[in-house]
Amino acid sequence: MIQLDQVSLRVGNFHLRNVSLSVPAGKYGVLMGRTGSGKTTLLEAICGLRPVTAGRIVLGDTEVTTLPPAERGLGFVPQDGALFQHLTVREHLEFALVIRRWTRERIAARVTELAGWLGLTALLDRRPHGLSGGETQRVALGRALSFQPRILCLDEPLSALDDETRAEVCSVLETVCEHTGVTALHITHNLAEAERLADCLLLLKDGRIESRHPRA
C-alpha cells in the first residue's frame, strides 16, 4: 500500500498542501495532472528524495516519512532511465544486490531471472550507450525491481518512447506487476497508457487529488 496523509511540501515558491492519496496493496496506481502540478515532486517525496513539511507517508505497513531513501524499500524508475553510464546492463541488475551483500550465487540467479522476464538476456554485457529507449527503460525497471521492493515508483517512464515501444514496455510492466505483486505508482500524461495500466487513477489538480475510475 502507498498512503499519503495530509502531506505538505515546498520547493522554492511552489507549495503542495495537505495532499492525501492511497494505492491499495498490489494495485497499480496512475497519477496524472498538468505539467507543473507537482506530480514528480510528490513522487520524490514518496521516494525520500524531498523532505515533507507536514503529514505522513506510509508504505506497506511502515511509516517512512522521515526515513532515508535507502530504507524505504522502494524501486524508482525515473523519466529518462538515468542509467549509470559506466556499468553494463548486468552490473545495473546487480547493483542493489551488491549493496545488500547478497551472495554471488543468489545475485547470479536473480540477474538471470530478471533478464529473462525483461528480455535483457542478450544485452547483459552492453553498456547504456547505444541501447534503444525501450531497452533503457527495461534496464531501469530491472534495476529498480532487482532487490524485490514492495513498492515501485515510475516517473513518466514511457514518455520518450514511440507508440510501438510504449505498448511493448506496457506489456512488460503488466507482466512484472502480475509476477511480483508490487504496489506501483506511475506518473503519466498519456490517457491511453493510464487506462491500460491503472487499477486506480489519481488526478492531481490545484493541489488536490481526485480519484477517477480508470476506465470511466
Binding site: L49, G75, F76, D80, F84
Partner: peptide, 15 residues
C-alpha cells in the same frame, strides 16, 4: 552529471 543518477542510487540502497 544529473543528480537523478545519485538519487536512483540512494533508492537502490546506497548511502
Amino acid at each position: 552529471i544529473s543528480p537523478r543518477h545519485e538519487q536512483v542510487a540512494l533508492t537502490l540502497g546506497c548511502t
